[in-house]
């Protein structure tokens, strides 16, 4: 009871990477899924703002459209596409892992590279097609 009222100081993630585990492709490609997924809220916010502007008036739309297609806007949208494609491929890899496949180290590392290279290729394809 005394211990409970004082509270137990348990370690909080990520305490393993660094002091205990050296960074590896598998763990880094996993954390990158989380980073891209959460960063995409910025892209979503911009897209919703752009849609809202299109629903409001022509002048407001032109303003939002100019911001999103400016140099900074282009950089953000390209990074968003890269983030979406990475998250897309890594998410599929996650489903594949969940189903119990590809867990051996050589396959897992190959899948990590597939996510990284695949996302770059798909982003370039997106820029070319769109």
């Amino acid at each position: 009871m005394a211990e409970k009222s004082k509270g137990v100081e348990r370690p909080l993630s990520p305490f393993m990477i660094g002091p205990y585990y050296r960074p590896q492709l598998t763990s880094m490609s996993s954390i990158l899924t989380r980073i891209t997924g959460n960063a995409l809220i910025v892209s979503t916010l911009l897209v919703v703002w752009w849609l809202f502007a299109a629903a409001t008036s022509e002048s407001y739309f032109n303003f939002a459209n100019a911001i999103l297609t400016s140099f900074v806007g282009d950089v953000v949208m390209t990074l968003s596409a890269l983030g979406i494609w990475y998250h897309f491929l890594a998410g599929l890899r996650h489903l594949y892992f969940d189903a119990g496949h590809g867990m051996d180290i050589p396959t897992a590392e190959k899948l990590g590279w597939a996510c990284i290279i695949g996302s770059v290729v798909l982003t370039i394809l997106t820029i070319v097609i769109v």
Binding site: V47, L68, F88, I129, V130
Partner: peptide, 23 residues
């Protein structure tokens, strides 16, 4: 995730074509 994987590529195509176009 499966549902989004099916619709997001098409959405990217639609949005990418609309972005930068006129009102």
């Amino acid at each position: 995730a499966v549902g989004l994987a099916l619709i997001v590529p098409t959405f990217l195509y639609i949005f990418g074509h609309a972005l930068g176009n006129d009102y």
